[in-house]
Design a binder for these strands. Structure first.
Lengths: 260, 260
DNA sequence: CGACGATTTGAAATCAGTCAAGAGCAGTGG
DNA sequence: CCACTGCTCTTGACTGATTTCAAATCGTCG
């Protein structure tokens, strides 16, 4: 029964983008896979490798990142439960970035060939996966904008909003409180800020009663104001369909205001 | 005869990623389309619109960009001849960024429905298009790294390398000399630098004999050194297949050194 | 020729980075 | 049960790359 639910989150995630038929769902549920436990910091895929498997994140978090020649590191996205973590790399034959767990994680490894097969036989599944990679690209663009054109305060506020919303959508948080197993240094690598400055800015946000911090847990105190500070506009997450189909979601603080 | 060649560049571009059969090519060639001339600065797609057409850039250049709330603008990519410019937006139903011409351009507009049809009927065409969007996402990630983790000098050098290589691959330049109808302000928006600093840095690169400038034409004087300065590693462009099939390309200065 | 936008140059202001040291909090092993 | 060790987080002082503001020059086009 554990086995039957392994793909539930993946189906749920793909269903955000497109309506999947029972056959589509069954096909996903029947994907060959290997479950594996990973320790914190394990690499799921390394840059320049030819991936043989595509990885579904069942539990835990992962980051996608790449290092610059001068030693800097840029994190491109933070993956959460239910994310199909390296569709990109699998389909491109050669990984152009690293994927690494943040903490202990449980993953399902899907052979790349099986992905190609299901895409060929079940066009809607293929479309959903394509959509998934497109949304991922949209997030990358937003991060480029974040890092390029927002100051430290805006950047951090923006990232916190994104995480809160994505965790909410994934059914793992209530949109207000969440915990992230990331050091401030890793935060800095995602935002292109020094760890020291991340620290100061987080404290400033708390000082301004926008958030509350306890260890690595964050509580958002004022959703609307944090979104304003972070110049956060959910549209880039392309959740339109999710909002139509999920009544709970559409009632969250993030979407009721509708001042977008 | 003009008509028959309209899709040549698109076919050439998609063939970079995957082998297309004659049928696939014929199907692309038979896509319904409207040719349109655009003036400099015209919007091809506006953020938040629902695109009805997908745009193939026949002549001229375009930029994809989005503004932040505080007035800054981030350019996500510079599109060149032959690029299918808004697959993303067309498939996502709602545009999450703007696409705008840099100079006068000639484009072919393809109805979104026709794209969906060809993808459904010709899986290899669909794969090639998917691949195209994946490479595009890879470029977005590289730009995030560029903007986040490289200093002004590195950033500019990196962008110049990317443009030289992409124009070479598109058969529009020799990999050394090229012309770009961009102001330094637009350069700055792509690199998240102020126009003033773009200017100073370009002059410094010329001063160091890495490039030569005349108006908006650039000549690269030392490919290897510029790549080193810009921390430029072509792999993110995923040109492996192109290098195997195109002997001219593989002999260019960018690929012979092979110090990657 | 005149005018407007783009580029160039200079000087001052600033956000964020670096360096360095101390404090807090595990987990380890004696 | 309590040092000890090793991270992360926090804080302060200094530094520096880049921005901003402002003015001059250049180039192109009507």
């Amino acid at each position: 029964m554990l086995d039957s639910s392994i793909f539930d989150r993946m189906i749920q995630k793909l269903s955000l983008w497109i309506e999947l038929s029972d056959e589509d769902r069954a096909a996903i549920g029947a994907l060959p896979h290997t479950i594996r436990m990973l320790a914190a910091g394990d690499f799921i895929v390394r840059e320049d490798e030819e991936p043989t498997h595509c990885c579904l994140l069942l539990e835990g978090n992962a980051i996608r990142h790449r290092a610059s020649g001068s030693g800097g590191r840029q994190i491109f996205s933070i993956q959460i439960q239910g994310d199909v973590v390296d569709l990109h790399n699998s389909l491109l034959h050669r990984a152009d970035h690293n994927i690494q767990t943040l903490a202990a994680a449980r993953v399902a490894l899907l052979p790349v060939g099986a992905i190609r097969d299901i895409v060929a036989k079940y066009p809607m599944v293929g479309q959903a996966m394509w959509y998934e990679t497109l949304v991922d690209a949209s997030i990358s663009r937003e991060w480029a904008l974040n890092v390029g054109r927002r100051d430290a305060r805006e950047r951090i506020a923006h990232l916190l909003c994104e995480l809160a919303v994505r965790l909410l959508v994934a059914g793992q948080a209530n949109g207000t409180d969440f915990y992230l197993p990331m050091t401030q240094e890793q935060f800095g690598d995602a935002l292109a800020l020094s760890p020291v400055h991340v620290n100061r800015t987080l404290m400033a946000l708390a000082e301004d009663d926008l958030i509350e911090r306890r260890f690595r847990s964050i509580r958002i105190l004022d959703h609307a104001r944090l979104a304003r500070v972070g110049d956060f506009d959910v549209r880039y997450l392309h959740l339109d369909r999710a909002l139509q189909t999920d009544p709970i979601l559409s009632q969250s603080q993030w979407f009721t205001a509708r001042k977008v």
